[in-house]
Design a binder for these strands. Structure first.
Lengths: 340, 340
DNA sequence: CTGTTAGCGCGTTCAA
DNA sequence: TTGAACGCGCTAACAG
């Protein structure tokens, strides 16, 4: 099968073909493809013409092997279906595109085993960088991460040890603010509803903010007002009964779907919102505007967190100096119908 | 810098290192890594031990270059943030993982230029296959797709020319069903609210179903009851006024967020749902259960559409026979509080 | 400004 | 059952 090109299986055209047709060396072709200025305009033009005629497309895999750069970054996400994370992902992808990177997206379901496994295949694929999203970053995972030289940035994810780059808002401050407002509205018993307190973001930041606000107002911290549950609508719906039983007149919830569940639970029970009960949620996803009454919320710049995380990662991949590897973005409080 | 390994920049260990340490050739190492049975159990064991000790991880890029397979598929999605598409994406990723593939996820915003551009970088990266999601597949894009030998499957996306593999539900039938029910409930004027009718899924399928149901009931088709708008909450909210002006007593909406907008518009205007106005939506995302009144909906197996699409793609990449390249999955109708 | 020459890390014949 | 050798398509010195 040489000389007789009877088998036209898959005639990929390579840089050689272009070189031959243009009467130059492959090095020159490589130069024009990569925008290297050291090429006479005339030959550049000639090469480009051939590239166009042959419809040549550089093979990124070969390029990756030779240059040790894949212009691809791995993104570990708990669940794309969750709008909190998909918002981050959108910011990540947009900035990645801006810097000519692509994203390999992998769902982890927050399962440690799966995370480690995903991490390994991502590293095997030679991604130039990694963005991790999740709630907890297990020791196991941290080990794997730190022994790889691949740059990593956490997006919307807290690392208590803080030795990895990350982009977040100040969750403690935000919750403290919210709590204070609720206190100022006259609430004596305020429920704190979040996911597992084992997750640093809840146990070490949000809860702290809640407690600090209470302290500042000389109000007692009552553990029975603290609820841990999963982030889902149904969980919130189911939780309403328990919350009401405590005599609480307001709730601070750390997930929007969960908050909607609590709200619906209250509404379905005939409770007047916000007159008899106030609810504040944490992510300000579009959900908060679509329901009635609309939910007051902490406003996190989700898209920006993703975007900034990716931007930080590009710097790391580029070995630029990082002046700040732990970035805190500002948040806001948006008042809607679920608070006074 | 030879012999004096002072510079420990990045000592990637390769298949050669393993071979040397194990006293075998790299070919043998390659064999055990790839599960080739032609290896004596004893040497296999020996090699595996070294692999483990050296923490060797095969370079997927080199592998891809040598084998011409990257075990990576490209996924073009309008917007991850849209739960309709992210649900599909989740199904895709899960099945991809199951078959050892990874996903390069790229947002297109339904922009044709961007789609073509993304397609090209995906092909440059030598993805083994492609999954496309969108509303319209432009001629431009179809051209690019058909001249590449890379297998493609459309997920939740209609191609009127039907020469590409695809997975969908029967949108025409579904809307026809819904319309018929609404007619049976006594509605004389039923609004049809969708995105652009230029999109085949709306103009050539959904609208047809709507018209057929009208015909079957000997009811007139009134163009003023047909609304085209963008898929967003605010668009729906804004649209309510116009819908009401037509005297319609029910609406069939082809997007959940849009439907919530219409519903909220009605509720905010003091209209009694479903007594005075009925609403049915099309995607049955979790949104439908979170609002009050809860939305009746066509139930599409979104996750499954993605999963089946990816499964189909694996077959194509594997060059297996495809008995059915245009797959139609079943749908359901879920009655909730927005219909009688 | 341009061409030559080595690899990048691995899969895969073809012999042995 | 194993090894030697070639090639995948391209980047990156190094000469010229």
């Amino acid at each position: 099968m040489k000389g007789k090109s009877a088998n036209m299986e898959k005639q990929t055209i390579t840089i050689y073909d272009v070189a031959r047709e243009a009467n130059v060396s492959m090095a020159t072709v490589s130069r024009v493809v990569n925008g290297n200025p050291n090429v006479k305009p005339a030959t550049r033009k000639k090469v480009l013409a051939v590239i166009d005629r042959l419809d040549y497309r550089p093979n990124a895999v070969a390029r990756g092997l030779a240059s040790k750069k894949t212009t691809t970054v791995g993104v570990i996400i708990p669940d794309v279906t969750n709008i909190y994370f998909s918002s981050l992902a959108r910011g990540i992808d947009d900035v990645a595109t801006m810097y000519k990177y692509n994203i390999i997206l992998a769902n982890s379901d927050e399962n440690n085993q799966r995370e480690v496994q995903v991490l390994n295949t991502l590293l095997a694929k030679q991604v130039d960088g990694l963005i991790y999203m999740g709630h907890t970053i297990s020791d196991n995972l941290r080990n794997e991460l730190s022994r790889s030289k691949t740059p990593v940035v956490l997006a919307g994810t807290i690392d208590p040890q803080d030795d990895i780059g990350s982009v977040n808002i100040d969750y403690r401050d935000a919750i403290k603010d919210v709590t204070t407002r609720l206190i100022n509205n006259g609430n004596k018993k305020i429920a704190f509803v979040s996911g597992s307190l084992d997750q640093p973001i809840n146990g070490q930041y949000r809860l702290k903010g809640y407690q600090e606000a209470l302290d500042a107002a000389k109000m007692p911290y009552d553990e029975s007002l603290v609820f841990q549950t999963e982030y889902s609508y149904n969980a919130g719906l189911a939780l309403w009964h328990d919350i009401q039983a405590t005599g609480a007149t307001a709730a601070i919830v750390s997930d929007d779907e969960l908050a909607v569940g609590v709200l619906d639970g209250a509404v379905d029970a005939g409770v007047k919102i916000p007159a008899d009960f106030e609810v504040v949620t944490s992510n300000n996803t579009k959900l908060t505007e679509m329901i009635r009454p609309q939910l007051s919320s902490i406003q996190q710049p989700l898209y920006d967190i993703g975007a900034v995380a990716m931007r930080l990662l590009t710097k790391m991949m580029n070995k630029e100096d990082i002046d700040q590897k732990t970035i805190i973005l500002p948040y806001d409080l948006v008042k809607r119908q679920s608070t006074k």
